[in-house]
């Protein structure tokens, strides 16, 4: 307990001693976390929206003739052999006609004289709504096209391709901003700790001479790095929350954004971002200690 108290006091003393560089480091860490979490928030919301919009996502496999139950089972088996799917529905010509009739509503008279089996039977395949599944949908479509008795396969190719490209772009941005986060946090913190070590060289030497343990000397610097990470990440997330609220209040018109389910990070993700930043900064601090503190 006494050790913790002493470490905390030493850490506060260190941070006050070099408050200017501490502020710069906090600002850098905050900005890095803000940039990273901003893109990550867009990405996670895009995935969320993709899931919602994906309710209508399906591959329609038109067949040349009605599939009897054994054939349906065979189709089901072959489809599942390629990939996991959410569900498979067989639509007969009659069912397709009824749907079409229902869609026409008051205009059903246009169907007068049209045979009820003029629409081809089909299989509606609902893929699992994951990015991996989306990325494989073209190949899935090509595969379905090769099944016996298949006339044509239809799906929202354009929408899926655009959505997938957007998600891929976001992934790249997140990786880049993540790398920025890692570099800034570790390098900036390491640099600050190095400055702190250099400026307190005389005191550290004295601590050794009066019988301080290595942990007594090291721990305040490690704690300093961890605090920088924790406070910086919290500020970054706080700034993002403020930005998020501002955007949703100012730009969420009833027709556009409010229709989409934009949500902020849940607590586990917030804690994970802060925790990872804290760890990264502690690592930065540790690397500086290893390089510049010769105990």
């Amino acid at each position: 307990m006494r050790f913790v108290y002493v470490v905390l006091r030493q850490t506060c003393r260190n941070m006050l001693h070099s408050w200017k560089s501490q502020c710069m480091t906090l600002l850098t860490v905050s900005l890095s976390v803000l940039i990273f979490s901003f893109f990550f928030l867009i990405y996670s919301n895009a995935l969320h929206i993709g899931e919602k919009l994906g309710d209508d996502l399906r591959l329609i496999v038109y067949l040349d003739e009605e599939a009897a139950p054994p054939l349906q089972e065979e189709y089901r088996h072959k489809i599942l052999k390629f990939d996991q799917v959410d569900r498979i529905e067989f639509v007969s010509s009659q069912q397709a006609y009824k749907r079409f009739e229902h869609m026409l509503g008051d205009n059903t008279d246009v169907l007068t004289g049209v045979p009820t089996d003029f629409l081809p039977p089909s299989i509606e395949v609902y893929p699992v709504r994951t990015l991996d599944s989306l990325s494989r949908i073209t190949r899935f479509s090509d595969y379905l096209q090769t099944l016996p008795g298949v006339l044509k396969v239809q799906y929202g190719k354009e929408w899926i391709d655009r959505f997938y490209a957007f998600i891929q772009l976001m992934r790249v941005i997140i990786i880049l901003s993540g790398a920025l986060l890692i570099m800034t946090t570790t390098f900036m913190v390491a640099h600050t700790i190095r400055l702190s070590l250099v400026s307190r060289q005389q005191e550290l030497e004295l601590l050794r001479l009066v019988g301080a343990t290595n942990n007594y000397i090291r721990t305040p610097f490690l704690f300093e790095g961890a605090l920088q990470g924790c406070i910086g990440a919290s500020c970054g997330i706080g700034a993002l929350l403020a930005l998020f609220n501002w955007i949703t209040l100012r730009f969420a018109g009833p027709e556009t954004i409010s229709q989409l389910p934009f949500i902020f990070f849940n607590w586990p993700i917030v804690c994970a971002i802060i925790g990872i930043s804290t760890l990264l900064c502690t690592f930065g601090s540790l690397s500086a200690i290893r390089r510049f503190l010769h105990l």
């Binding site: 005389q202 005191e203 030497e205 004295l206 050794r208 001479l209 019988g211 301080a212 290595n214 105990l295």
Partner: peptide, 22 residues
């Protein structure tokens, strides 16, 4: 070992010629 020097330093108090004050 280097990581045990504090055990010695706690038994030995030294007043240095150059004081070593902060």
């Amino acid at each position: 070992p280097r990581n045990k020097i504090h055990l010695l330093r706690r038994k030995v108090g030294t007043a240095y010629q150059d004081f070593k004050l902060l």
